[in-house]
């Protein structure tokens, strides 16, 4: 049952800084995410969380190491293969929503499907379905800038879900939301993770959001220094553990 969806091995990432000094952000980092798992990555600012997520999600190349997703080595894929892979297997939810302002909510959500040459009828059906799930049916004809932050974030989530990806990446998906909206967002992610079996890898600095995950990795100075699992405990109990772990960190 525990089949890995993602496997990263010996990742290193070094940025050439503007001052000319090489800056190592990730150091020999390895991790495995199983199918249907919900993994949160936490750590202090600047510890390399975003860098790690970008590498795992094909948006960035590591300096060395390997990443396989669904048994495919993503670092050896060419441009077209990566594009296809992103379009079919991955969904992205980011802190700054990343919606296209020139398109309506409906158009934004249907974009991944139009790219996959899905029939117009099926597109409409799929959009309707995620819109219902995320309670945004009434905004479909509006433009992103006419929506609140929480609404925009849900549109972003809808776009990440609409094509039934196997893996969703989130970088601070609740970062711009108030606690009420953050809770809702996490509930949605939890739902799709449990009901649809979609794996989720999410970066967050918020203990509450992290407590929805089944496993939390703590990143310090480019290495995973601690892993905690929820196992069969309640979310509240897990939340308390996360809080105390963060206390240890500081």
């Amino acid at each position: 049952m525990t089949e890995p969806v993602l496997n990263a091995n010996q990742l290193n990432k070094t940025y050439a800084s503007t001052a000319g000094v090489a800056h190592e952000v990730l150091h020999d980092l390895s991790l495995t995410v199983d199918k249907g798992e919900f993994v949160a990555i936490m750590g202090p600012s600047g510890s390399g969380k975003s860098t790690l997520l970008n590498i795992l999600s094909t948006l960035m190349q590591p300096s060395s190491g390997s990443v396989t997703i669904n048994n495919k080595n993503i670092l050896q894929m060419n441009d077209a293969e990566i594009a296809k892979f992103r379009g079919q297997d991955m969904g992205f939810i980011f802190q700054d929503y990343n919606l296209i302002e020139s398109l309506t909510v409906q158009e934004n959500i249907s974009l991944p499907l139009t790219l996959q040459k899905v029939s117009p009828k099926d597109i409409k059906k799929a959009v309707q379905k995620v819109a219902q799930l995320l309670h945004i049916e009434s905004y479909l004809k509006q433009y992103p800038t006419e929506l609140s932050g929480g609404q925009q974030q849900r549109v972003g989530a809808a776009r990440a879900l609409v094509h039934n990806p196997t893996l969703i990446f989130g970088d601070e998906p609740t970062g711009a939301l108030d606690s009420e909206n953050a809770r809702e967002m996490m509930n949605y992610l939890n739902q799709i993770n449990e009901n649809e079996g979609i794996s989720i890898i999410m970066v967050t600095h918020d203990a509450f959001s992290a407590s929805f995950a089944s496993r939390i990795l703590f990143l310090t100075d480019g290495q995973i220094t601690k892993t905690i699992s929820r196992d069969n405990r309640s979310r509240e109990a897990f939340y308390q553990q996360v809080l105390s772990e963060l206390g240890n960190f500081n």
């Binding site: 948006l59 077209a80 379009g87 991955m90 020139s102 991944p112």
Partner: peptide, 16 residues
């Protein structure tokens, strides 16, 4: 720039 970045993210190839 940002719009094209989003496009790439949801599976548009460089060529496209």
């Amino acid at each position: 720039k940002n719009r094209y970045r989003v496009l790439a993210m949801i599976g548009t190839s460089e060529k496209k």
